[in-house]
Design a protein around this nucleic acid. Structure first.
Lengths: 199, 199
DNA sequence: TCGTATACCGTACAAATGTTCGGTAGTCAA
DNA sequence: TTGACTACCGAACATTTGTACGGTATACGA
């Protein structure tokens, strides 16, 4: 969707805002990339047309980036479905910000349904902070997609295949044989929990 | 420390940044308050001198507010000590941002020490999201200051005084008689939990 | 009473900045 | 080949904007 150049400029604006608390001027962007203001305008127009930027005409430093594209933002993802792009704009409900060293870039929040991880102190309605990755080590808590369904479980690799264990005696472990490995995909590893208590 | 006028202007800047993603110009502030640019300059200078604002000379819309004074930010508080102002600048270690409806204004994060609330799924090292308030209802989880020490416990009012119960059989309830009520002060109610797992 | 800080007015200036215009050049699909 | 998009140049223009200066008035503590 975005060209390399456009992406680079969007990144620069993002980092600039993150560092300074206000967006750069057209000339500051130009200086950074060694081009003229008019050239920067071309890029800004393109980014605006594509919905990655907003600005006000004739006013300085009024570039703003919609929350979902902003740097450092951790999106709250609605559903995790097979195939669909995880961070599609319609799928992002809101965004939170944490200190940089708490969440790796690319992390996202996912609402937990059910009490299967109660023993690991993850409750129904909690949000888990997920670090996206395709594989996992033994004993790690992962978000996995089994068929069409996303679940949070503890991950173990066995000689027969993979076992996903709940942390709740009421739930039986899920065993996936090596032959049916295609039905399982690891979305990421759980690196945090956020709980908001209602009234 | 701040005059009413200065506070009002700082608030306006704060909300403007929150709404627009960039700070207002001197004239926009002036328009809001019905005063001339030069008057706004006076206020900005005062705010800058007092450390509530930063800016770059001769550059437009470069006002920025240090993280600890920024609107919508939820400060991470180091220690909770008797008497000391909770949000003293040196006491704020970092700031996070949550959706507006998740955290009431004035909320803050406090690191939990010890496993006394394990039964309520609050672990050693977790951060609790605290809504500041001086009183509490039966059964609510509160942050309380007993003498010099801050603890997280479940709150109960009894006919003899107040009981603070841990959610862990290894810890005994703490009973405060009505006569020694002065040693207890409620800091706030726990309205959320944030856990970040290390590596 | 004097000094300091606040709060404001009006005007004027100069720097920073967004914007426009016409032009060149390359890529890529129809 | 034509059209659309990207990427850029240089210069000129118009607006926005920060800033400076000198002035008035009030409140407050030393």
């Amino acid at each position: 969707m975005l060209t390399d150049r456009q992406q680079a400029i969007l990144n620069f604006i993002n980092e600039y805002v993150d560092d300074n608390g206000f967006p750069p001027s057209v000339r500051e962007i130009g200086r950074q990339f060694g081009v003229y203001p008019a050239t920067v305008q071309d890029h800004i127009s393109a980014l605006e047309r594509k919905g990655y930027l907003q600005k006000k005409r004739f006013q300085s430093r009024t570039l703003s980036i919609p929350a979902s594209w902003r740097k450092g933002g951790i999106p709250i993802v609605g559903r995790v479905a097979a195939g669909l792009p995880l961070l599609a704009q319609e799928n992002v409900q809101d965004v939170i910000h944490l200190p940089k060293d708490w969440a790796p870039p690319g992390a996202f929040l996912l609402k937990v349904r059910g009490n299967s991880m109660e023993g690991a102190h993850i409750l129904d309605g909690d949000y888990v902070l997920v670090h996206p990755q395709q594989s996992a080590s033994n004993g790690e808590i992962v978000v996995a997609l089994i068929g069409e369904e996303a679940t949070v479980k503890r991950f173990y690799r066995t000689d027969r295949g993979v076992t996903l264990k709940a942390e709740n005696p009421k739930f039986d472990p899920i065993e996936i044989e090596r032959s049916e490995a295609a039905t399982l995909s690891i979305i990421g590893r759980v690196v945090g929990v956020l709980r908001v208590m209602k009234k």
